[in-house]
Design a protein around this nucleic acid. Structure first.
Lengths: 357, 357
DNA sequence: AAAATTTAGTAAATCGTTTCAGTAAATCGT
DNA sequence: ACGATTTACTGAAACGATTTACTAAATTTT
């Protein structure tokens, strides 16, 4: 068959109703150059073997590739190379500031290194985590990044957990220095003269709940003002809004709890807390100082602007991605650290003030 | 070679330092059953051809698949089927409420239909949009979902644009009923007695800027209170925080503009606006009523809680995903609508009040 | 001028599936 | 009892790349 006929054949194959715009494959490119796919591939990838191909031929190949807009199919490449340049990311949900800020750090680092990622929200439901981890494996992700996600015993892939406190061996955890965070928060309130400090604990499902509570109560003990049990309220429900915080403080108020400062589990719950206090006629910060945790965007433009303990969320995301890529590349699973600790920072704004002022 | 030897061979191949946990392939599974991969594939996929395979054999196959935890490799499947069950999503950035809320709707719908997605932020930079659209094609996504993203002239894949106002033929746009939104906002202020209304326009790069401005000024004209040019300020810069809004209002105040109500481009800028007003000694809503746009989460817990025009962001995301999947399935590009319109809703909270009260 | 090396490539296997086109053996119809 | 059909499978090609192991011709070395 003459190559003219061959060409026509190609063109006519789909000349029916819908004009299927086929993309050009390596084979097409090679055919148009009257060279073998091997040669073309070798040259385009600058393989060492291609040294013996004369420059003129190489130029012809590059020129034709550009002209026909040839782009290697990454699916085929992935299959052959057994590498997908893709990772899977698990997050609790795609709302509010926490997960998405971490995600922005993850994205930045991954794209920088030419990795793409799949995200899925698991709403703290174990079976979704399980199911989607499997899907990730089916799609041959090279590693998994878990944000505020409990144990996913998916052991044979590299895993990095951000604020996950995953004790599975081989898993690297990116964690905040919680002791320091607790210390900063309590110290700030103590410096302002507060002694009666109420605390809102996180939901049971949140991985940070226990460590943060421990850090805060130990810090309080160190300052000789142990947290009274009657001044502790806990967030309930999966509602990712301010409501759990609002309700937690209402319960506190209903029990006639006596406090001049409130340490919230996170900024979102601090917002709810402040509303509850305001509705109860307590002014923030004049009557009650409120300190949040995380420093999400909204903290700054809240009124009153929220004093909070900043977690470097974006940094934690990019660090997580960085360590995951490191693991993927080393391949000798086991070398990477179990914990990578990042430091919190006290951000003083308007929601805290000296006691009794 | 006996199959025992074959097995040993397999086992020993990587018996060096690192124990490579190989996943089991169709071929492995078939070998363990002493059947051909064809048969196993046919049965596992319940192909019509498998009707002639006796139940006992089918059971053996399913049993072995479960036992060896066989999972089909989706990369290989994608290559063969020329379908990846993956779409690409373009968003301006992974922060604040807008994109991520839309994204949550997108995610919900896509996962429901067993599609995964890649996301990339483009920060409104044309070359990033261009570059990543190409990467999407390289990875054989089946369609592209563009959120608040200008024209990406990537024509041969199905594209749905959310708030993008993309006039390229074949692109379906999910858009808000802007006329109605403008009407609702202005009407609300007029009903409260406001006549001197200031407006903050969006940044030039935002796809909604023009249509929203047009809708607002036409609505104002209808109510016989055309917006004065001196009462219009525009957001500048790509900073995704409240700052542009804050600066826009400061410019307005610096020019001694006289207004009793302010219509902000979005909630984020409304927050900045309110801060600027407060710092200038104007109370919201007593001295100036402020109305936002979008109704992001933070709007409700802002103080004062923000009156705003709600865009059903999550709905827009899921609608976008729905229409994209529809396009992908029809395949006969051209049938789908150019515009899908969703309705806004006025949410009255505390940042607006009768004039002069 | 024969042997060795370099030049300029190519054929075929492979990654893990799916699917089209067979094919032997068993069963059925008449 | 002979052809037709059904049953129970399998071989090989294909998807689109990469890579190993060749080869034939040209050139260099000895």
């Amino acid at each position: 068959m003459s190559d003219k006929a061959q060409k026509d054949n190609n063109a006519n194959e789909f000349s029916g109703a819908a004009v299927r715009k086929k993309t050009v494959s390596l084979k097409d490119l090679a055919a148009s150059l009257k060279l073998s796919p091997t040669t073309v591939s070798l040259v385009l990838n600058s393989a060492p073997t291609a040294d013996s191909i004369p420059q003129t031929t190489q130029d012809r190949i590059f020129e034709a590739a550009r002209h026909l807009k040839y782009r290697p199919n990454q699916i085929a490449r992935s299959l052959r190379a057994q590498r997908t340049h893709t990772v899977g990311v698990l997050i609790p949900e795609m709302s509010e500031g926490y997960s998405t800020t971490v995600l922005s750090g993850i994205e930045e680092k991954l794209l920088e290194e030419d990795y793409f990622y799949f995200v899925v929200s698991h709403w703290h439901r174990a079976e979704i985590i399980e199911r989607h981890s499997r899907f990730f494996v089916d799609r041959c992700v090279e590693g998994i990044l878990a944000v505020d996600t409990p144990q996913n015993h998916q052991t044979f892939l590299p895993v990095v957990s951000i604020s996950g406190h995953d004790q599975t061996k081989g898993v690297t955890n990116i964690v905040l220095n919680h002791e320091q965070a607790g210390h900063l928060a309590v110290e700030h309130l103590v410096n302002l003269g507060h002694k009666k400090i109420a605390v809102i604990k996180g939901q049971d499902f949140s991985s940070d709940t226990e460590v943060r509570w421990k850090a805060v109560s130990e810090a309080a003990a160190q300052f000789d003002i142990p947290i009274k049990e009657t001044l502790v309220s806990q967030l309930v429900g999966t509602n990712p809004t301010t409501e759990p915080g609002y309700l937690a403080v209402n319960r506190l108020l209903a029990s006639n709890a006596d406090f001049t400062a409130l340490l919230a589990f996170n900024d979102i719950s601090a917002f709810g807390a402040i509303r509850a206090l305001r509705e109860a006629g307590r002014r923030v910060p004049q009557d009650v100082s409120v300190i949040g945790f995380d420093d999400i965007y909204a903290a700054e433009f809240h009124y009153p602007a929220l004093t909070t303990i900043r977690q470097p969320l974006k940094k934690m995301g990019s660090l997580g991605a960085e360590y995951l890529l490191k693991k993927i590349r080393e391949d000798i699973s086991g070398e990477s650290p179990a914990d990578v600790v990042v430091e919190p920072e006290l951000i003083v704004r308007q929601s805290t003030a000296p006691v009794g002022k």
